[in-house]
Simulated scan of single mutants.
Amino acid sequence: MNHKSILVHLANDEEHTTRLEVALKLAKQNDAHVSALFITTPIGMPAEIYGRGASVQFLLDATKSSEDRAEELEKEFRETCERENISHSWVVQEGDHISLLAEHAHAADVIIVSQPYFEHFEDRFRTRLVEEVTLLSGLPCLMVPRGFDASKDIAKRVMIAWKSTRESLRAVRDNMNALRKADKVFLLTIQPDTQDALSLSEINNYLNRHGINAETLTIAQTETSIGQTIHDSAQAHGCDVIVCGAYGHSRLREMLLGGVTKYLVKEATIPVVMSH
């Protein structure tokens, strides 16, 4: 990507070092500033924690552990940034993760978060950080998949999931600089109606005028969900990131019935940049 101010979400979770490595790599490549926001409050309460006393003790212990980890990581972070000459800032706060990320979003171009885990039924409601941050921040949200190898390239081969919606157009405009620098850009539309077919040509011409030569792909029919078809096509074309709009339908409908956003948040194995 080619954003100049990167906000990375940090917490004491399994994927926090990967997020930070991705942020530092992108910052180094694009001469960008990294704002590291470490939130010490636990993201969610484990399902096995019951009762007021147990919950309070868990929060106290988890917060103390996070504070200790924040101190360790800050030292590593600052040393790396100084060694690599990366502009940086470090903030530690306690509170709601979604609210704090949205608050700090005013000074960023993109937010880096991790794909949530879905081990329990409750996780679908408790770990909606990706979707909520995308909706509330007004910024593109780069979701790093679980277990991602941070040494891999991002945005060398880009798949744009296109539909004639405000969200898709926002996603394209949010990532114009990255699209210009990409080695290959694909513009994908699935089961297009007349309006989609027309807008696909128009958006392709728009990209051309900005120096972006995209290859258009049209899938007339699909036996899988739209989300899976987008993901499978991105993999088939060797793409390392998917650019798409988030929540073209109502949030309630997507939560209850599925949708592209829900599928990608849950199932993606390559990074996804979402805009709303």
Rank of each mutant, 00 (worst) to 15 (best):
D193F: 07
G258L: 06
Y263T: 00
Q93K: 12
E82I: 11
G238I: 06
L207D: 05
S168K: 02
T127W: 14
A107R: 12
F38Q: 02
V273W: 04
W162K: 02
E94H: 12
E122Y: 13
R19K: 13
L20P: 01
A70Y: 05
Y247Q: 00
G211N: 08
V110D: 10
E223M: 13
L188K: 05
T269E: 07
S35K: 09
I154A: 05
R126K: 15
S201W: 14
R83P: 06
L20H: 01
E167W: 01
I86M: 06
L26P: 02
A236W: 03
V34K: 00
R126N: 15
I219Q: 12
E67Q: 14
E71T: 13
L135Y: 10
M143S: 04
T18A: 10
F148H: 09
N205E: 15
S55C: 11
G147L: 08
W162Q: 03
R128T: 11
A234M: 05
V185Q: 04
I86Q: 05
Y50P: 03
D193L: 08
L59M: 14
R128N: 11
N175V: 05
T165E: 06
T216F: 13
F118Y: 07
D153W: 11
S114I: 03
V110A: 06
I219P: 08
R251D: 10
V185Y: 02
M176S: 03
E94F: 06
A36N: 08
V185K: 06
M1D: 07
A23D: 00
I39K: 01
V185I: 10
A197M: 15
E202I: 11
Q57S: 11
T229R: 09
H231Y: 07
V133Q: 05
I112K: 00
F77G: 00
R166N: 03
A11T: 08
W162E: 02
D196K: 08
T165N: 01
T17W: 09
T261G: 00
L198T: 13
A102I: 12
A171V: 00
D149I: 06
H33V: 06
G227K: 03
I203S: 03
A36W: 04
M255K: 08
I212S: 03
G44F: 15
K28N: 09
D183A: 14
S87F: 08
R180G: 07
